[in-house]
Amino acid sequence: MTRVKPQVDTSTSHPARVYDCLLGGKDNYPVDQAVADALPRGSAEHARQNRAFMHRAVGWLAHEGIDQFLDIGTGIPTEPNLHQIVQDITPRARVVYTDNDPIVLRHAEALLISRPEGATDYVEADVRDPEAVVGHARGLLDLTRPVGLSLIGLLHFLPDEDDPYTIVRTLVGALPAGSYLVLSQAASDIAPPEFARKGAEEYEKGGIPIQGRTGEEFRRFFDGLDLVDPGIVPVPEWTRDAPAHPVADIYLYGAVARVP
């Protein structure tokens, strides 16, 4: 399939490129670097801990037998990527990546290098059109079988006016019983007010709306689902395989839940 060369708007910052900058990547522009540089101290460690949470969560799902994944808000490839984590455990795993930043499409080839037994695909789509995302995912995934759905570090870029609860319900509603939902979200009730204020202010200066949520607000995304232990916790504390080693001053909630 021939992919159309994407047009990247380098005059406006984008969450995927700011995240790449925080992780020490090179696939970003001055507008993104300006946002990253102005964020509160510790923001880069938040990005690293968020990614480490993703590694642990999807690795656990693969060990549990999940061999299909839909990753929304993929971001710019940073090894190990989700498919590398899960295919190391289950080589036949199939992964669909989705993002709405054209620069991610430029790196799609890196995301599509699957183990021979498995498969990967990339879709340029916006989570605010969940039906379209699901429609594209059906091209690779069998939605009659359990799927691991991940939205890592994405929800806080969906303010309430985007109706994120309905978006998540729509995505989960397309999945069969035995599927899992993996989420992380900026935590407004454990972050110091100055940290939260400055973070929101700097993102908004870059044209990126952001909204932290309390633990109870975050829990609403899991209504009707079965939370997996340890439940809703700061992302460094989410682990299934070993005692957690808390990392101080990380203001991101993470959780995994099973679709009953």
Rank of each mutant, 00 (worst) to 15 (best):
G139K: 06
Q87L: 12
R258W: 10
L155Y: 03
L183H: 02
S13D: 02
D226S: 14
T2K: 15
Y203Q: 00
H14G: 06
P116F: 10
E194H: 12
F157Q: 01
P30H: 09
E202S: 00
L151D: 01
A174Y: 03
T12L: 12
Q87T: 08
L155W: 05
T74F: 09
V95Y: 07
Q211I: 00
T10F: 03
C21A: 15
N100W: 00
G231N: 13
A57V: 00
I152V: 15
D71Y: 08
H63M: 14
I250V: 14
L183V: 02
Q84C: 04
V123C: 14
T12E: 05
L143H: 04
E202Q: 11
E64D: 12
P246C: 07
R3N: 13
A119M: 05
D229H: 13
D99H: 06
A47M: 13
S11D: 14
D99L: 06
L181I: 10
L252C: 02
A132T: 15
P15T: 09
V256G: 03
N81A: 09
A174H: 02
H245G: 09
G206C: 04
F221H: 08
L82M: 13
V127A: 07
E161I: 02
V31Q: 01
L171Y: 02
R145N: 06
G178N: 08
P209L: 01
G173N: 09
I103V: 15
A187I: 05
G207N: 08
A36Q: 09
K205N: 02
L149V: 00
D88S: 15
R258C: 12
A137N: 03
G206S: 07
V127D: 05
N50L: 01
R48W: 04
V168G: 03
F218W: 13
H46P: 04
R197V: 02
A44G: 11
L155P: 01
F69Q: 04
M54K: 08
I72S: 02
L183Y: 01
L252S: 03
R220V: 14
D160Q: 13
F221Y: 15
H156E: 07
D249K: 11
Y19C: 06
D160N: 08
D32G: 05
T144D: 15
P234K: 03
I103R: 10
S13Q: 07
V233K: 12
R51K: 14
A34R: 15
V228I: 14
G212N: 10
V259G: 03
A38E: 06
R240F: 11
L149N: 01
D126Y: 00
Q211L: 06
L141W: 04
I208V: 11
L151I: 10
P236T: 04
T12I: 10
Q87H: 10
S150G: 12
P193Y: 09
A110L: 15
A36M: 11
R94N: 01
Q7H: 15
D189Q: 12
G178P: 09
Y165F: 14
S179A: 07
Y165W: 14
V133K: 05
R128Q: 12
G75V: 09
A36N: 13
G212P: 11
G153Y: 03
E194A: 12
